[in-house]
Design a protein around this nucleic acid. Structure first.
Length: 113
DNA sequence: CATATGACGTGGG
DNA sequence: CCCCACGCCATAT
């Protein structure tokens, strides 16, 4: 049987470049609903072989403290993939939830105006 | 076994 | 947008 760590790792590894997911989404996809914190710990313990920079908080904010080396690093990596990051947060259209919204309403819905 | 901690999340003021 | 409280879970002390 695969351990939780392995499943979480697999899910994170499967996130396409230029896209992001929230800790909660990863946990859910890994079959561990509610274990967002465990996802964070797995990433912290990962050696760097995983695209950890594609995992953000549910609100689209980078989980590290603003200004920290880690936060800067993550923002830079995301921009390198075409993800717009402003003030430690991913632009609305690219946020984790947007992925789900589009699935529900499609790409042609009114949107906030 | 009781507390404290954190790369979290949601709801309410 | 800011701040706070509470829930949740694996580890650490």
């Amino acid at each position: 049987m695969s351990s939780a760590v392995q499943r979480i790792s697999a899910v994170v590894a499967a996130i396409p470049p230029g896209q992001v997911r929230s800790y909660a989404q990863v946990a859910l996809a890994a079959g561990l609903p509610g274990r967002a914190r465990q996802v964070a710990r797995v990433l912290a313990g990962s050696n760097g072989s995983l695209p950890w920079h594609r995992v953000l908080r549910a609100d689209g904010r980078i989980a590290f403290a603003a200004g920290s080396a880690q936060a800067t690093e993550q923002a830079q990596r995301l921009r390198a993939e075409g993800v717009q990051v402003t003030a430690g947060r991913v632009s609305k259209a690219q946020r984790p939830a947007a992925w789900f919204d589009q699935l529900l309403w499609g790409s042609d819905h009114p949107g906030p105006v």
